[in-house]
Design a protein around this nucleic acid. Sequence first.
DNA 1: AATGATCACAACCGCGGAAGC
DNA 2: CGCTTCCGCGGTTGTGATCAT
Length: 358
Amino acid sequence: MGRSPCCEKVGLKKGPWTPEEDQKLMAFIEKYGCGSWRALPAKAGLKRCGKSCRLRWINYLRPDIKRGKFSLQEEQTIIQLHALLGNRWSAIAAHLPNRTDNEIKNYWNTHLKKRLTKMGIDPTTHKPKTNIFGKDAANLSHMAQWENARLEAEARLVRESKKQISNQFGPNLATKPISYGNQRNILPLQTKIPPCLDVLKAWQGTNWTTKPKTKDMTSSVFYPFFDSPTSTSNLSNNNLFMVPNNNIPGLVDMNSCLVAASNFVENTKEEVQTEWKCYEKSNNELLSQINDISYSNDSSTYNMSITDQSSLCVIQGFTHLENIVGSCEDNIFEDDNNNNYWNTILNSCTLPADSPVF
DNA sequence: AATGATCACAACCGCGGAAGC
DNA sequence: CGCTTCCGCGGTTGTGATCAT
């Protein structure tokens, strides 16, 4: 193997960028736009490798970069997306306007990962470290299959998305890098987002039919944990918990949907008591603790207010979990235009192996 | 005040995939 | 169809800042 290096390394500078170098790079990109990174350093009069220039521009010099502390909302988004996408920082960054993948990756590694570990959550799997279901070993292969299907589906959707953009705007736009140098050429960030990631919109739906009772505490991060769809043949009625729903019957497999919540003081959003807890339907604990359930306007997600010992938590989740834990072949969605991520993935699971999209 | 440990983040490196020839 | 080149991504490292002793 062994490719030739991206550029001739002899005589090229490494390490921290000086203000003069930054100025040269910015001036060049403002004038000519970015792209063709290999040739850029020579043209811009920089003794740097093209990759280094690209990185400096994308992660630091770009005018639309938002710097500073991550908000609570951003933290939640990162954690939720990481649970869905894993370490695909660029995909996660697409949902955090003006944040770079590198910044998110660093923040994850230095803050969020440690925090989850401290809470007893495995930051890789987003599952509790304790083996509370006693079936982890059996689930490993299922999880691997599920992950593979998910990755394949996402790759397919990204490709389809690019194709759509290409059809709409011409053959070059979908693949050409975004130009940040000329403001008129800036491609809206959203254009890059594959439709599959719209799951976050459903997930984070904020218009609830009834407001959860939160007293003086309000919710924060939540974790649904899903089994592989291939593992559902063993579902028994005992595992299922029916969520009342105004429009669409919701069915949650509570054995597959672990929920954890931490509490924040309302208004300040300051975390006061991080108490992570996993619920199982089997012990009826959760059922007895539910105070109130409300649904997003499209009924795709729910808020469930739960009294946990002395504090009140609000838990959020999907109402359509039966589509995840149930049969891959059934598609009961009538709302077919909401780009439901999970449903899309499930559909992809049922595609024949020789499907042209893979 | 000095020193070692830890943290935070910018930057580098290697690899995979896409495009071009 | 195979090879080469380039871009972009994710993992890792290096280094300055901050904290603890």
